[in-house]
Amino acid sequence: MRNRAEKTIVDIAEALSLSVSTVSRALNDHPNISVQTKDKVRKMARKLGYRPNTLAAGLRSNKSKTVGLIVPRISMFYPAAITTIVQNRLQEYGYHLIICQSNDSYEQEVALVNTLYSARVEALAVSTTLYTTDFSHFDLFKKNNIPVVFFDRVPGNYEGKIVCGDDEDGGYQGAKHLLEKGCKDIVYISGPLTCSLYTRRLEGFKKALQEYKQSYKKSRVFFQELTKENALQTCKKVFSKKQWPDAIFATNDTTAITVLEYCRNHGINVPGQVKIVGYSNDPRTEIVTPSITSIDQDPTTTAERVVAALLELIQQKSATATKQTREIIPIHLIERASSK
């Protein structure tokens, strides 16, 4: 037997005195190969440390059985929950997932799109950065008929398949809940409006104010990256003034939890003096004290629909789109102690 660092099916064939074609069929579970032969081949493959060259196989068949996924940050609850479900579901259908994070960098997102194209993924699922307004880097996939499914943070008017939560209704339900509790001075903390997700949530927030005949106060609305540091700075601005708000609606749960922490540290009673609503139903919102009311985005359903869209487009073998198709996942407000 030849002594090479990387073993191939030729080495397995020589070790077992079988033909290369028989070994190849055995490794691919061909029905014409006996169970005994398959067992022998697999045992020898493990013994020799054989690794199948899936890239080469993909080049021959034009099917890599691999899907790319780009999310802003894997550390965030919502994209992490979706990533886990997408990976598990795709594995059930024999697909592998390459997981990438853009770190909310547009330049990094562009680089990742090109890298995944070079890796010959069969499809791509993307939740874009906060600052992605030019989607032309996805043209590479579209021109080569490789499906792209956008979810959560999605384009406003770029052609393709969209799966996202009902963000306008989320903004509306959060504000409506606080207004129904008698709140009249609501601070609204939003992400940057370069991201259409936050544009839609703001529209819902304004709709609820209008319905309850409350004015939209620009001084009570903040647009920022929804980090703990930014949330603390906003709390300092809001509570340093003589007139405190009676509610804060934060459009992510990291911000809502930070607001709660600030209030607790400064003797501000929640919900007695200030009511709080968050967004995403991060598991942490249920275990802090008091627990935080939040908008549930149903990551399970979203992930299931993303997988269904990917598989459907892969089977169609075409990514050509002349319009945008949008699938909206309903949201639900989960009332907890912070707004009672």
Results as ranks from 00 to 15, higher is better:
N28I: 09
I314K: 01
D11M: 02
G174L: 03
V126R: 01
A247P: 08
D298R: 02
Q101I: 00
K63Y: 07
E6G: 14
T115W: 05
Y188V: 09
R120H: 08
Y93K: 11
Y50I: 01
S291Q: 06
H30D: 01
E304H: 06
G272R: 09
Y131F: 15
A119F: 15
S21I: 13
A319K: 01
R220F: 01
I146T: 05
V187S: 01
G170M: 12
M1S: 12
F205W: 07
D139Y: 14
T194I: 06
N144K: 12
Y279Q: 07
P245M: 09
D29Q: 11
T285P: 08
D29C: 07
A247C: 03
R220S: 08
L193Q: 14
T37Y: 11
Q315V: 06
L202K: 15
P72S: 01
K43P: 11
F239Q: 07
G49P: 03
G267E: 13
Q243A: 10
R2K: 12
T302K: 00
R264E: 11
I276D: 14
I186M: 06
V187L: 02
R305Q: 15
Q87N: 07
V187R: 02
V221D: 07
I186Y: 13
W244Y: 12
K43Y: 02
N103S: 10
T322P: 12
H177R: 10
Y95A: 03
E180G: 05
S219K: 15
L179T: 04
C195S: 05
V126L: 02
L311P: 00
Y50M: 03
L310W: 08
V163D: 00
G174S: 06
I287M: 15
W244P: 09
K218Y: 08
R42P: 05
I292M: 08
Y216F: 11
P330L: 03
Y198H: 11
N62V: 04
S240H: 15
Y50A: 06
S196T: 15
S21D: 14
P330W: 00
